[in-house]
Amino acid sequence: MPPPRTPRAYSCACGRPIFFRNSECLACHRPLGYAATRGTLLALEPAPPRAGQGGWREAGVPARRAPRHVRCANLDSAAACNWLLEADEVAAGFTLCRCCRLTRTVPDLSQPGAALWWCRVEQAKRRLVSSLIGLKLPVASKAEDPAHGLAFDLLMPPAEGPGVVTGHADGVITLDVSEADDARREQRRDQLGEPYRTLLGHLRHECGHYYWQRLVEASAWLEPFRALFGDEREDYAAALQRHYANGAPTDWGQRFVSAYASAHPWEDWAETWAHYLHLVDTLDTARSFGLDGERVELSYERFTVDVVAEASDPDAAGFVQLINSWMELTGVLNELSRAMGVADFYPFVLSAPAVRKLHFVHRVIHRAPE
């Protein structure tokens, strides 16, 4: 398997392991910061003052080779951001990192639970954005790119009146931050009969709608999309009303990655996109720590390149290897989850049509940098 696009295993300058969320090494207490462009967590030391500038540099690296960084202004906020700004961002006047700049609206922190929920949402968003950057997808805020940028409005549900509707519209993702309350989210998951519901899953799904507009809608991918997912010009509101009234078709598992994906072609794309991000980030994490789905002791019937051969993709074999590694790894992870008495790690089974849709997402993402 190829090396991870977004590595997840890091070491401090003291040699101890450190993790993506950490802002301080628990062993030596050095400050830490995530350098998004490099995709790594750095141990930091104060940079020598220069022209009135302070900042930080990577610990243990000669001064002439260590670029100067500034820690995100949200480090000491409830968001507890551990990301770094690079010199060009500081020169442009930014005080927030690349991920925090995407948040256009912060929840009302005077409300009970809001600070904790904001922290949890931003933790999930940092995981999402680091993966998007690793995949070389376009990631810019509305402030930096008003026409094509991305923004997150994180809203508290009102005490009375209509609730916040999580969704996407023209580059703006709205999220009900009460989804960060574990009890509320589990209650909604049970009410909707969903096998899986997480903050990260919400964010991956909604950003799928954004990237459909950005990468597919006005491109040569649109007709192949319609041939595989269906015609997105179908009445969206009517399709969702029908889905919630009647549920998914009984054979949804033979054609879609999830029951909700059957509601409308847009939702099929967004669910498939989210599942692709699930698998690439999980496999990146597994490979970062020396785990490989190719070596697990399971004898699944493996997909062959024939399942996606009609796409004429020169990397079809690499994609199929990715899917087979995912199946084998999640089979073991599901058993480990059951050993702990918790829900399955990945409670889905991939059909051949679902794999073809995942392959389409794979191709769109890998062509995006071009």
Results as ranks from 00 to 15, higher is better:
283 L>T: 11
163 G>V: 06
230 G>L: 01
12 C>I: 03
15 G>N: 05
169 A>K: 07
136 K>Q: 14
281 D>N: 11
72 C>W: 01
93 G>R: 03
47 A>F: 02
203 L>D: 09
226 R>L: 00
312 S>A: 13
74 N>M: 03
282 T>A: 15
66 A>W: 02
341 G>M: 04
215 L>K: 11
366 H>A: 07
347 P>R: 05
351 S>A: 15
290 G>V: 09
18 I>R: 03
277 L>F: 09
200 L>T: 15
251 D>R: 12
52 G>I: 04
161 G>P: 06
327 M>A: 10
216 V>F: 02
34 Y>R: 11
141 S>P: 09
47 A>K: 07
54 G>C: 06
244 Y>S: 06
197 R>E: 06
232 E>W: 01
229 F>V: 01
267 E>Y: 03
325 S>A: 15
232 E>H: 08
237 A>Q: 12
91 A>Y: 03
314 P>E: 06
24 E>N: 02
118 W>K: 07
288 S>N: 08
147 A>G: 15
64 R>S: 12
120 R>S: 12
269 W>P: 08
21 R>C: 00
183 A>S: 13
58 E>W: 00
63 A>D: 14
318 G>T: 08
328 E>T: 13
84 L>C: 04
112 P>K: 06
268 D>L: 03
85 L>M: 13
321 Q>F: 04
43 A>P: 03
233 R>F: 00
65 R>P: 00
66 A>V: 02
16 R>D: 14
349 V>W: 06
130 S>H: 12
157 P>N: 10
323 I>S: 07
195 P>Y: 10
